[in-house]
Design a protein around this nucleic acid. Sequence first.
DNA 1: GGTTGCATGTAAATGGTTACATGATTGT
DNA 2: ACAATCATGTAACCATTTACATGCAACC
Lengths: 180, 180
Amino acid sequence: MDVKTLCLGVLSRDDASGYEIKKAFEDGPFSCFHQASFGSIYPALNALSAEGLVSVREQAQDKRPDKKIYSITPKGQTALVASLMTEPAPDVMRSDFLFILSFAQYLPPPRIARLIDERIVWYRTMVDRMEESSRVDSPAGATFVRGMGIAVYRAAADYLESHRAQLIAEIGDAPLLVAE
Amino acid sequence: MDVKTLCLGVLSRDDASGYEIKKAFEDGPFSCFHQASFGSIYPALNALSAEGLVSVREQAQDKRPDKKIYSITPKGQTALVASLMTEPAPDVMRSDFLFILSFAQYLPPPRIARLIDERIVWYRTMVDRMEESSRVDSPAGATFVRGMGIAVYRAAADYLESHRAQLIAEIGDAPLLVAE
DNA sequence: GGTTGCATGTAAATGGTTACATGATTGT
DNA sequence: ACAATCATGTAACCATTTACATGCAACC
């Protein structure tokens, strides 16, 4: 699933500028499971435009730079659905946090405690944010995915909260390998 | 966290060949949150060797190609711990599955049903595998991380099972945009 | 007879990200 | 005075994946 398809997906929900598409991957509904930078979004948008999968209209703004607002075309809708019909690539997860935690016994307990505490806060914040956005009415798919995000992040936070103390106690008994 | 650190982490648990390290990222305890291919592992191992962070011994095998078994050195242990003390990069998740599901209303319900069913099986299989490996005694960090994996994957599978029917029903009412 | 597993390695291609360039406005 | 937000875009850089190269043994 390349950046072009990702942009098409965002645009299928609503017209947007490149800048706004970026936000959808930063804070928005896609931030949890896909990401893209300006360096990939702007070229993708130009390519989509050249292929006739999106249309552009320039919008002047006062006190703000001009915007290019992109809309998905019928051809673009078809292309999006075709991409959605291909077999999804396997999920990819990259977590330095879990990698570090899996060697907790080599590290100072206060560091482990801090990492876990920060992570709990992060998960709770994400759950709150998702619950808030679930108050506005969304398409069935988006609602389903958001609900799954809430369930999974809540399970993660709950686990960290309920097992934190035991891990800290266990690694507290072992000798340190590094100064704090 | 680059591939060199990842290899150092695997080797801190036990001596291994490049081939065996690959397996740790494919099926093993790290497969859920980091991955690496041969094309990155073998060069990383050579670099680590040149830096004195690992040592190598060649092992002849009958009916199998020769192996190069790598061991972490004291210097390597120090380097690993130093890496583990740096701030972890933010987690990255890339899921075509969730991206596709968030546009479920554009797609044929049987496809959505199949995708969800396959995913449930996958999560349950992973949970079973992790639970099995939790019967052998592991360091505190690894046990903690494995437990979190089980909790999170179980929550994901439970959510998919309990909300599957409702999603299928909701998208079944809308007109199809593509032939099955 | 074809696939999978074992085992190491290289080179090319890829698909990004990071950093840079530019500039007004608003908030601290 | 400095950082952040809005807004678009390019080019250099990067790490990794993919594909290739090689070959034997076991299994179906």
